[in-house]
Amino acid sequence: MRIAEVRGEVELKALMVAALAGDGVAYHRLLKTLTPHLRAYFARRLNRAAEAEDLVQETLIAIHSKRASFDTAQPFTAWLYAIARYKLIDYLRKSGIRKTVALEEADAITAESDSDAAEAARDVEHLLATLPDAKRTLLRKVKLEGLSTAEAAAATGMSESAVKVGVHRSLQALMKRIGVKP
């Protein structure tokens, strides 16, 4: 069950309003609920998980110390998103990374979730991007799309043995890149 589907603006805002009125349990639940969203938001925009976790914590602290700036007549997700985006831009500027952060819809942050599958797929794409074009195409066809060696050979015009050798070498190169001894 994805959090994004159940918890929308209405529920988050209700938790925030209760929290501001002094309901510690609602506040704890709110922060708990937000954390995976924040984690996914930062992880998608930064390369290292440790950096993303630092920003998650910084944002949680900002939510806490700046909670007086939330106007209960305004949407909660817009407030949350603006804080997360501010922290991200601040971090990118401090670390000297030049990157454009798109002005997305305010609800984009709760539409994200930190599903492992999504992250794994992204990691694979990052790794594949380091390979030369021909090898990347070959590896994608055989290992990701599930073509047989013969089908891949027909599709690329290579001989079957060339396909086998190519796939093997590409995998070796990738394993070396992530530090695994073949």
């Binding site: 510690g24 506040y27 704890h28 922060l31 708990k32 954390t35 976790e53 998650v56 914590q57 949680l60 602290i61 806490h64």
Partner: peptide
């Protein structure tokens, strides 16, 4: 992060 959340909530 969990410990931080608990502290903030308290």
């Amino acid at each position: 992060t969990d410990a931080l959340i608990a502290r903030l909530a308290e």
